[in-house]
Design a protein around this nucleic acid. Structure first.
Lengths: 220, 220
DNA sequence: CCCTTAATGGGAGAATGGTTCCGTTAAGAT
DNA sequence: ATCTTAACGGAACCATTCTCCCATTAAGGG
């Protein structure tokens, strides 16, 4: 709850964007302010899941969050600002990595987590929207990158343990291997918009493992 | 020039979207109509390169293309419609695949083509925009998928020849291998927004090759 | 418990983006 | 060469989105 929005708008570059207070929500983050943020972010996620990023609209968010629209404009500034803060919020709620005892199992668990997330009607839509927003705005892109940095760091031990067990070469870069597992899934999700079947995830795991064993992901 | 826009808008689902003619530009694709399309698509690409997808605006496109804005609205309907048609247009201009004599060289050429495209200030921005648009609209997503289907089909022979030479197992799925080369690059481009260095492309090639040799991409 | 003021919220007004109308231009057919 | 009409384009029109002003509410400090 402390790394919330630093600057909501960046289309305008005026030194003092609003009337008084530097950035609303930081100086007096009392119960009401927090409640407003929660309601707005929930409404944002709902809207993204329902209608996607292109239809994201400040007024509607304000209405469905039961919040004054002035507040939404003041604190978040734009649809992209909403998504960016949603990303910060999502980065905070982390769920722990798997530990099946073997690298194959762990990577499979990771791939299936990604698959389940992206194929879930609600979450899939949210991620699509978030990726679209990141493509439109630099600040949002940073938030998205930070989100995945967090996620990947959580899973890195899976690879480190496997290296310790001798399943893969010693100097293997954990993040690099995890990215290799995710990449084919995200490629299909964002570029070719293909269905993410079980075969696809399995193949992603197999291929990444083969490359890792071959030393393709050695830290340089 | 024949597989141009089939239906420009799909936000509304009325059987006859416009006053008369089914879809403008198809019944009488004379010199003027073609010129207008060229001017509009060029202006669209410029706008995407300059300001990105979120700022894509029909009025401005019309103005900078030197075309009536009514025409732009009538033929393309929305910013997403513009991007979709631009994708159809891009799919038509194909550049041939490499043939260096070895699979490693060919895949490296492919990876570097992708990298050069995505790191090019103009083209990179266009692709970013196109990916964002595809995340917002189903029709646009289909156009993007078709674009990459075309591209990948052009490069498939590279893999087929390598299999014939015995560099990789016989039943290797060409498209699957090519996707494996591209995926890490696009993952960084769209998700983590990392810089695409030479090391990244090289690693993408090495990893994909190792997996291919290991039979990870065998057609099932 | 009261006071100060950060933060919210309603509503009016401005701006931007999108639509429609209808006259004009030129592609394709005879 | 002439005719028909698909397609274009200017301008007025309408809707939505955004911004600003100011009264109201409640967080945090005494």
């Amino acid at each position: 709850m402390d790394l919330m929005e630093q600057e909501t708008r960046l289309t305008e570059s005026q030194p003092v964007p609003h009337d008084h207070a530097a950035t609303p929500g930081t100086l007096r983050p009392g119960g009401r302010t927090a409640k407003v943020r929660r309601a707005v972010l929930d409404a944002t996620q709902d809207a993204l899941a329902d209608t996607g990023f292109h239809a994201l609209n400040m007024d509607r968010i304000a209405a469905s969050a039961g919040v004054g629209k002035t507040t939404v404009y003041r604190r978040w500034g734009s649809p992209v600002g909403l998504v960016t803060d949603l990303l910060h919020d999502m980065a905070e709620q982390s769920l722990p990595a798997a530990d099946t005892g073997g690298l194959t199992g762990d990577l499979r668990a990771n791939a299936e987590l990604v698959r389940d997330t992206l194929t879930d009607p609600r979450m899939g839509a949210v991620f699509r929207a978030v990726i679209a927003a990141a493509a439109c705005d630099e600040e949002c892109a940073r938030a998205l990158a930070a989100f995945y940095r967090t996620r990947l760091a959580e899973w890195a031990p899976v690879v480190t343990r496997a290296a310790a067990r001798g399943e893969i070469p010693g100097g293997t870069d954990p993040v690099e291997l995890l990215r290799a597992v995710s990449a084919p899934l995200y490629y299909r999700f964002t570029i070719t918009h293909e269905e993410l079947t079980g075969a696809v995830t399995e193949r992603a795991v197999t291929a990444a493992l083969a490359a890792a064993r071959d030393g393709a992901f050695l830290r340089e």
